[in-house]
Structure formats: C-alpha cells, structure tokens
C-alpha cells in the first residue's frame, strides 16, 4: 500500500449514482416481499383443497365456510378480541398516566428501567415464572384475570414507549403557561397535551391490540378456561388437522392489506400541506415559548 490512489468512483458507485433510486426501490420491495412471504403463503394455503401446506393442487373456499361454523375457533376469536380490548383500555390508560408523571419525576432512569425492561424478556420466561409463582407459591387460580395480567404486562411497555415518544413534542413550558392562565391540570392536559399526543395514544392502542391478539407464550402458561386464537391454533396443529385456522389467518392478512391499501388511497387524495399550516398556527397562537427550538 505504498502508492496513494486518488479517489475514483468505482463501477458500483457510479452505477448507484445513476440508478440509485431504482436500486433502492427494488431492494426495499424485495425486503417487504420477503417479510410478507409467510402471510401471503398462508393465503395461498388457505385455498388448497386438501388443507396441506404444499403447492396448491386444487382450489376451495370450503375452509372459509367451515371457519365460521367452528364454534371452538369462534369462541377463541371472541375471547381474543375481548382480551385485546381490555388490554388496550387498561394498558393505554396506565401507560398514559406513567408518561404524564414521568416528566415530573426525579427518578427517570428507575421509571424507564421498570417500564421498558419487560420488552426484552422472552415471553415464555415471563409466562413460566408468573405461572409457577401464582400456582405453586401463592395458590392463585389461573383465570381470565391472569391472562389479562400477562397481556397487559406485555403491551404496557410498548404503549408507554409510543406515548412517551409522542409526548416529547409537548412543551413543558406550554403546560406551565396554561396553568398559569388558570387552567387546572385536567384542562391543561385536555387542551394542550391531549391534541398533540392523540396520535401517540392511537398508535399505542393499535400496538396493544395487535400485541395482545397475537400473544402466545404468556397465554400458554397463564391460561384459565378457554383458549385464545394463538393457543387454539397451537392445540389444533398438535393433535388435529384444521385448515380453518389457515383461513382465519389468511382473512386477517387480506383485511390488513386491504386497510393499508385504503389508507394509501386516502393519503394520496388528501392534501396535507393545509393541515401542516393549521397546526403551526395553532402552536403559534398558544405562544409556545420553545417554538423556535423545534427543528423543522
């Protein structure tokens, strides 16, 4: 390496500079495709007449019809939905309270540690430990309540993270100013913080719902009477052949793809600049002190 080589764009680099955008699009499309392969395969398998995971050799809608008459599956579905709704309501409420209190507490690292670390805990370890503690050492029955506890402890950190993130846009000074002008803490929250963190609350609710709806390991250990959809699926593929479960999964995939497509259309046809202006005006009207600091 004695010779100093002057910089010359390599073949790859010059190719990238000419076709960079296309290369990126192709790459990301492949990435999305890869992640989407399993859900798409589920849709394909759900039409296979034999209900076996193989290259489809016959087409049928039978499993979709049978899905709705499978009371076990429907019960599991209703239970999962009920559990998910309760998880959403409770986790988002608790997470919001902690996020509101978090800014004012002195022990930030402690609060963060307690709230966030459960994310990094494999589900089966938590489910196993909690179920052993409850049944062997405390003599508590596993019921719907223990499942709910498991689900909340899984969804809570995510809800908290999302709400906290959205709250970083709230200016502490604005709230102080509002209270200065005679607003009680509730009004200050409602009029100043709530509009800003509302998207965060919505994302937190969506997150919690999805996390709860698909929770398997914790439910598996903490289950009372009656399975949820994931544990139902597990029990089914263990001892029985049930192509209806593929139909249910396929339906979820198609529904969510459809919703995303609708959302994309909506975003395409809705102008967004006007809204941006009105938001800025609103903040300006409030005389936000930190406005100038906000990077744009």
């Amino acid at each position: 390496m004695s010779e100093v080589v002057p910089y010359r764009p390599g073949a790859l680099e010059s190719f990238l500079s000419r076709h960079g955008r296309k290369v990126w699009v192709v790459f990301v499309a492949l990435g999305a495709l890869y992640v989407l392969v399993p859900p798409i395969l589920l849709v394909i398998v759900s039409f296979e007449s034999s209900g076996v995971v193989r290259i489809p050799q016959g087409f049928t809608l039978r499993w979709y019809a049978e899905m709705f008459t499978d009371i076990g599956l429907m019960n599991a579905l209703f239970k999962s939905i009920g559990l998910a709704i309760l998880t959403v309501v409770i986790s988002v409420f608790l997470a919001l309270q902690v996020a509101l209190g978090y800014r004012k507490t002195k022990h930030k690292t402690l609060v963060i540690a307690i709230m966030i670390l459960p994310i990094f805990l494999p589900g089966m370890i938590q489910g196993f430990s909690l179920s052993i503690l409850l049944t062997q050492f405390l003599g508590v029955q596993r019921t719907f309540l223990t499942e709910l506890i498991g689900h909340i402890s899984w969804a809570l950190p995510f809800a908290f993270l999302v709400i906290l993130t959205s709250m970083s846009a709230v200016q502490r000074e604005t709230v102080m100013a509002a209270m200065d002008l005679g607003a009680n803490p509730w009004r200050a929250f409602r009029d100043i913080e709530y509009p800003i963190i509302k998207p965060g609350l919505i994302s937190a609710a969506i997150f919690s719902f999805v996390l709860s709806f698909n929770e398997f390991s914790r439910t598996f250990y903490l289950q009372g009477i009656g399975p949820t959809v994931p544990t139902f699926v597990f029990n089914k593929i263990t001892v029985d052949i049930t192509p209806e479960i593929f139909a249910l999964s396929a339906l979820t995939v198609v529904l969510s793809l459809g919703l995303i497509a609708l959302g994309t259309l909506y975003l395409t046809f809705v102008g967004r600049t006007a809204k941006k202006v009105s938001e800025a005006e609103m903040l300006a009207d409030m005389g936000t002190p930190g406005q100038a600091e906000k990077p744009t």
Binding site: S168, K198, S203, R272, S278, P295
Partner: peptide
C-alpha cells in the same frame, strides 16, 4: 437535539386525524 422531534409517521397520523376540521 434531533431526537426530540415527533417521528414522521406520527405526524401523518396526526394529519390524517385532524382532517375534516
């Protein structure tokens, strides 16, 4: 400094939500 911004996707949510006012 930069972290204390709202992430873009939340903004989109926000904007979509505020639509219709």
């Amino acid at each position: 400094m930069t972290l204390n911004r709202e992430p873009a996707f939340l903004e989109e949510f926000l904007l979509a939500e505020e639509e219709g006012q």
